[in-house]
Design a protein around this nucleic acid. Sequence first.
DNA 1: TAGTGGTCTAGACCACGTG
DNA 2: ACGTGGTCTAGACCACTAT
Lengths: 261, 261
Amino acid sequence: MNSNPATTNPPNGAGATDVAPAPSPTFSPLYQQIKALITQGLESGEWKPGEIIPSEVELAARYKVSQGTVRKAIDELAADNLLVRRQGKGTFVATHNEDRVQFRFLRLLPDDGDVHPHVSRLLECRRLRAPAEIARQLDLKPADPVVLIRRLLQFDGETTVFDEIWLPGAVFRGLTAERLADYKGPLYAMFETEFGTRMIRASEKIRAVAADAGVAELLNVAEGFPLLSVERVSYTYGDRPVEVRRGWYVTTGYYYQNDLS
Amino acid sequence: MNSNPATTNPPNGAGATDVAPAPSPTFSPLYQQIKALITQGLESGEWKPGEIIPSEVELAARYKVSQGTVRKAIDELAADNLLVRRQGKGTFVATHNEDRVQFRFLRLLPDDGDVHPHVSRLLECRRLRAPAEIARQLDLKPADPVVLIRRLLQFDGETTVFDEIWLPGAVFRGLTAERLADYKGPLYAMFETEFGTRMIRASEKIRAVAADAGVAELLNVAEGFPLLSVERVSYTYGDRPVEVRRGWYVTTGYYYQNDLS
DNA sequence: TAGTGGTCTAGACCACGTG
DNA sequence: ACGTGGTCTAGACCACTAT
């Protein structure tokens, strides 16, 4: 909030002409403030993934702004993939459950365009104290508790991916191998429905590396075989890091798809 | 254009109530039509990269629509990186020359965050008849003339990238090794200023591969060394493919940066 | 029929950049 | 002081979905 908070804003214009608008050195548009308020509602769980949020006119009334201002706020949140608009129905909180968001966070495709759903095979899931590097990336104190998941992904029967996933223990309290094994569907969908933590964006560092003995055995390739190394940090609301993931991909018959625009 | 062309649109509302609006089975919003008209101006060279385009009010007058409609059209073109808005100055045609667009099409970064400008070393530039696969990707007839460029990129003195670049000969008439060697700056900037062809977007397939003898020698690595293979197809206006590029990246000390959102 | 998001307009004022 | 893009409002109508 700043000098023109939503609750005290005059009903006309971006500022009033009769009250000395004060050239706000830290000016922030009204719709950005509304955007922040809606984001708060998402973060606090007022509206949960998959649910509908109030209509534009309702939100406009609540925040005492015009529908157009709410509209612009929602436009940006939809562009950020936090909300999904559906004409005639309403605006919904985005979810990793029913979307075709699989491709958004696992961009490995087969050379022939066929789409095989992948199968996950859990290797282990245990709790330990965070190594220094992981703690740094997760914004934790060294030796804070973390969860380590190791798993394989099979595409069409072929073992193609080996993942090591690090999660903050405080957030993922109660995450066990059993619950992981039982859960159907994408990991991020489980995180969202079971632990109330929604992955918003991720940043990846991609390299080509030679398979070491351990990884080679897991992926059924020779030692020294070229693998795609993908180091990912995922973020939730407020750009807080909540996952560090290191993946090794076999890219024979598969490729990592990326679009530059 | 469709049933409500910009030139004959009533000045109010998305349709008239007194003329039987005709439920347009192929309805397209006005601002989309304006967007197409502006794109035509860009494609035809009416406004060249780096130049300013007419102000919103001017365009609104020209197309006989409100400023808000022009605004929404320009908003989308700016989101597509075709235009750049600068408050107080105007709206400009995007260019590969002066932007910090280097990172947009070459996403190789050093492990330590330092930013070294890269140096290009041309190996060869010759004309030949398109191999079947290249012709298919460039939407040409087999054996149509193409230009093949082979080059190395050095980061901070280290040879890090080997590129093979295929271009349609008809578009890049007069492209020679001399002109390539003389040109300073990004390749895409040259394509845009010298050949009037602007790269808008690209699609990449990324793999880890073992260096073969030829590539290994060029990149000063051992045969079999893991390299990042990047196959890119670049597109210009109208999603017409105008470049096929195959790159081999050494990713020791460097990584390919990618953001998922 | 009613409600939702989507489009379009018109007018006012603000922030920024340049004379 | 002026012109540009940027924000905000208010009201009308359209397209889509459900009841």
